[in-house]
Design a protein around this nucleic acid. Structure first.
Length: 550
RNA sequence: GCCCCAGUAGCUCAGGGGAUAGAGCAGCGGUUUCCUAAACCGUUGGUCGGAUGUUCGAAUCAUCCUUGGGGCGCCA
């Protein structure tokens, strides 16, 4: 709010002074409070294009800025910073304004209704979701919520790889476990097969439903039945895991369905028409090196089957056909080699490759008692997303995943996430919310809480701790826009902790409910109620609950 | 060998080219007749992996080096 206000004010003054303003300057909250409540580098950034010394330009701007009664002081410092001290009256006005907005505070039309498709998780339906999928779910969903809040039209989609090689292997694994269940000696379980215990569970369930009937089917039909059963079960399992994590997808797109619709042939013909396919060693290749990939890629294998790339590309093209102008894919750390061929295909088919944006999440390591938890997918020894959520809970899991920037490795300390004390940041934030609720309850009990608040009450708020809280709250709208723009939801976690820190400090220093000074009490109630609302907005955007009591 | 990501306090990590680089935890010392001590206050702690460059200004941008993690399939 205030940053935008200052930014606009400076721009107005620049244009009234007929000064050029091509480069974009910034308005920031300085690290050091001695440098004011807000600070701009405008004079330094614009010095060159206006052929003026930074300090002289700053002086010129400051002279005009000082006419605004909302600035307590406008000073020039260092190499040409303009530092603002904001009057209490502006903060008081801002508090009243943001209070009126209620849960719409922070909403904007920044995204201009751009249709954005967020694809994330998209795990193989061949087993339970792992912790990297959980990280992707938390990241993608939070980004979705924030983008929606600031005026984009985003949608979440899960691409189901329910066709191809891995699904065949899944069916084979299930058949072996089923035979084993019937007392057959299956020998050593194949290396490539799925070793997880869940395959045995599936076998039991299928056996209970169909018994030996399945073995009477001809081989082809039996395989189809096994595939269908396993896919349905596992997909439902994944969907439930995500639902428990409060992640709901607008769309689930099946690779099998896409194939049945004939899109594979379409994509092959597009690429052929674009003159970038060729035949070699009985396979059909995409000459992706022409478009920046480091090797050409197979489209159709020598056995006549199609590679993963073709239907996936087709899927991406359907996103464009459905009117999305920004396609954001959230990938795990093992897929970065895949991006050049996807980008190459966009170039080959003359689509703007900048529409496609890939975000990489780095790996997650679990730590317990200071030791890294070892996992092996091959041996079926993994900690699943459900395991994690069962142990630490949805709130802590989501918080820890969101709090790190996407492209950094994440060390997840299981014990820390479980601790219900000041070491655990998720409790620190939730506790602030609960604490406020508790004060409000007390105020109602003491009959200090008014039937309705009056704007004049805000004038009672002028202590530095009170104004600092208001200032922090007003930073949220600009922050949300930045987060959406740079796809950096982790900054919301940092912000939330800072806001809570200011509140806890305020709480320890100032009594809110006091019979001696009813008006001040009411003013402070108005303040902390707003803090509670802003906190609830932040927690909701992160998909974390805001408890009234802890 | 090639490609991607990371290296900031003892630990986990913030840090839109800007001022004296921050937070939490750990360590040390304090705070409760009072709205939740799941909190707060004080204090110790740094060659921002290294080098060069770009500029008025670099933890931030570029190049090289180094260490750690991941990826280089007619798997997905």
């Amino acid at each position: 709010m205030i940053k935008h206000l200052l930014h606009d004010n400076i721009r107005e003054i620049l244009s009234s002074l007929e000064l050029s303003c091509e480069k974009d300057f910034t308005v920031e909250v300085p690290n050091n409070p001695e440098n004011g409540d807000y600070s701009t580098n405008a004079a330094m950034i614009l010095a060159r294009e206006n052929k003026a010394a930074p300090k002289k330009l700053a002086e010129k701007l400051a002279k005009e800025l000082r006419r605004n009664k909302f600035y307590k002081s406008v000073e020039i410092a260092g190499p040409g910073f303009i530092n603002f001290k904001i009057s209490a009256s502006l903060y008081q006005k801002m508090l009243w304004d943001l209070r009126k907005l209620g849960c719409d505070f922070g909403s904007s039309d920044y995204g201009q209704k751009e249709k954005v498709l967020l694809e994330f998780v998209s795990a193989n339906p061949t087993g339970p979701l792992n912790i990297v999928s959980a990280r992707a779910a938390a990241y993608g969903d939070t980004l979705y919520r924030i983008m929606k809040k600031v005026g984009f039209e985003p949608a979440r989609e899960f691409y189901i790889n329910d066709a191809g090689n891995q699904v065949d292997i899944l069916a084979e694994s299930l058949e072996l476990r089923l035979r084993e269940l019937h007392g057959e000696n299956i020998g050593e379980f194949p290396y490539e097969a799925y070793h997880g215990e869940y395959v045995r569970h599936l076998a039991h369930k299928l056996n209970a439903a169909e018994g030996v009937r399945i073995f009477m089917l001809p081989e082809k039909e039996r395989t189809e039945r096994l595939k269908e059963f396993a896919l349905n079960e596992l997909l439902e399992m994944q969907r439930l895991s995500l639902e428990r994590f409060d992640v709901i997808f607008e769309g689930w797109v099946s690779e099998k369905t896409l194939r049945a619709e004939g899109v594979v042939e379409e994509v092959l013909s597009y690429l052929t028409e674009a003159d970038c396919t060729y035949e070699k060693e009985d396979a059909i290749w995409f000459s992706s090196t022409k478009f920046g990939d480091d090797k050409d890629r197979v489209l159709m294998k020598s056995d006549g089957s199609i590679t993963y790339f073709v239907p996936d590309l087709a899927y991406h093209l359907t996103k464009i056909q459905r009117g999305y102008t920004k396609l954001i894919d959230v990938f795990g750390p093992d897929h970065h080699g895949y991006v050049p061929r996807l980008k190459a295909a966009f170039k080959a088919l003359k689509y703007d490759e900048d529409m496609l944006e890939i975000i990489f999440l780095q790996q997650v390591n679990l730590f317990e008692s200071g030791e890294r938890v070892k996992m092996s997918k091959r041996a079926g020894k993994i900690v699943t997303m459900d395991d994690l959520v069962n142990v630490v809970g949805k709130d802590a899991a989501r918080y820890f995943f969101i709090a790190r920037k996407a492209n950094a490795h994440l060390n997840f300390d299981l014990e820390l996430a479980l601790q219900q004390n000041n070491e655990n940041p998720v409790y620190y934030c939730q506790y602030a919310h609960a604490r406020i609720c508790s004060i409000l309850k007390k105020a109602r009990k003491d009959k200090v809480y008014p039937r309705s608040f009056k704007k004049e009450l805000t004038h009672k708020l002028n202590k530095p701790d009170e104004l600092a809280l208001i200032q922090k709250m007003t930073d949220l709208p600009e922050l949300l826009e930045l987060i959406a723009q740079h796809r950096e939801p982790h900054r919301l976690a940092t912000y939330t902790e800072e806001l809570c820190g200011l509140f806890h400090r305020f709480y320890n220093k100032h009594q809110v409910v006091s019979a001696k000074n009813k008006e001040l009490s009411q003013a402070r109630l108005l303040l902390i109620e707003s803090v509670k609302d802003v906190l609830a907005i932040c927690l909701d955007l992160m998909g974390i609950s805001a408890p009234e009591k802890m």
